[in-house]
Design a protein around this nucleic acid. Sequence first.
DNA 1: CGAGATTCATGTGAAGTATACCTTTAGGCTTAA
DNA 2: AAGCCTAAAGGTATACTTCACATGAATCTCGTA
Length: 402
Amino acid sequence: MNKEINNIFEQFLQKESLFKDKKALQSTYIPDEIKHRDIQITQIANILAPALRMEKPSNIFVYGKPGTGKTLSIRYLAEQMLTLADNKKIPLKIIYLNCKLKKIADTEYRLIAQLAREFGKEIPPTGLPTDEVYNVFFQTIDGEKQIILLILDEIDRLVEKAGDELIYNLTRVNTDLKQAQMSFIGVSNNLVFSNNLDPRVKSSLSEEEVVFPPYNAIQLQDILKRRASEAFKEEVIEEGVIQKCAAYAAREHGDARRAIDLLRVAGEIAERKGDKKITMKSVDEAEDTIERDKVIEIVKTQPKQFQATLYTVLLNKNNAKNKIVDTGTVYETYRDLCAKVGLRPLTQRRVSDIIAELDMLGVINAKVISKGRFGRTREISLLLPSNVEQKIKKILEEDLFS
DNA sequence: CGAGATTCATGTGAAGTATACCTTTAGGCTTAA
DNA sequence: AAGCCTAAAGGTATACTTCACATGAATCTCGTA
């Protein structure tokens, strides 16, 4: 074994970790107690409670900005209900689906297929009629008396891509079900989303509504302190670090997830450097790292064509004087690039859609504007810090030219 | 000078096509009685 | 004759293409003051 590598591991083991339990800062972690969301949690609990008596609860529509504890609260309740149901032998099933995940739940077929899979049915990725998959799903769940809670996270994404008819169909399944009953919990980050919904869909989905307001700085601090005490060992956090994390997040509409990420990454950075304490400086560094890692992760997992499109945007952006490019120039360079790397070029129509999707992912910023006499186009710009941009460029080059 | 027409470059919707994958069906081959 | 395998037929979802029309403000045109 390589001696250097071995050294790294040895050193790592000798170094005393700052963390006691890193899980407490990961996004999947559900704490025993959720702070400052009592009102929302009781509200939802009251609505869902009938499920434990085998009565179908009302459908709920939950909304609030990112990082306001929506997903966390619901998962927490789900967990509680499941343990209770398990003890008392109540046939309760809770399914959680995140609709923004590409290839999982972003079309009608895929959503239903995924649901059926949750119940242990094998559904092929394509080939079956959607009706058929519906049938399989119905029959599976109606096979026994049970209550099903379906949590659709980021439901706005789903509706945007697949239309609201799908939701309407889903909310009406109960009329066809003899034994089982199904309720919906739609979760959305987008506050105005429900206004664009078909009124019928809206009324059936949001029989009840729960709003999650942003946390304020004090609440954020409180949450962070709690998490930190679980995650870190005693005395490893320097004075003011928590406040700083909270302040950063409060600036971004009280996004607790961001605050927690910040703290975790700051801890990781400090640990890697061999520091004994997490300092303010680590937080600053974490601030840079986080955004970068998030975007990089997205970029890496995109299909080749998306990467190629993004790459041409990057190329053009640097040549343009005001850092803004338009669809036409992107498409031209895109074709050149395709020729260079041996990729079959797509039509401008498709590239236009891809640009729109990249915009939705938040990697680029594309706005449709009319330049009067000079036609109309998308003004594409990047909002990433230049070091992130360089890194992405490198990754794309590796991916594309190999 | 100003209202309305024109224009450009691309957005955008609808319909069609290619591909990958599915089930069903029919035929052919093997096997066992 | 029954059973099993394979290949063809017929069907679907998805990503993409093709076609055609929609947009919307800068610019042009032309009638009027």
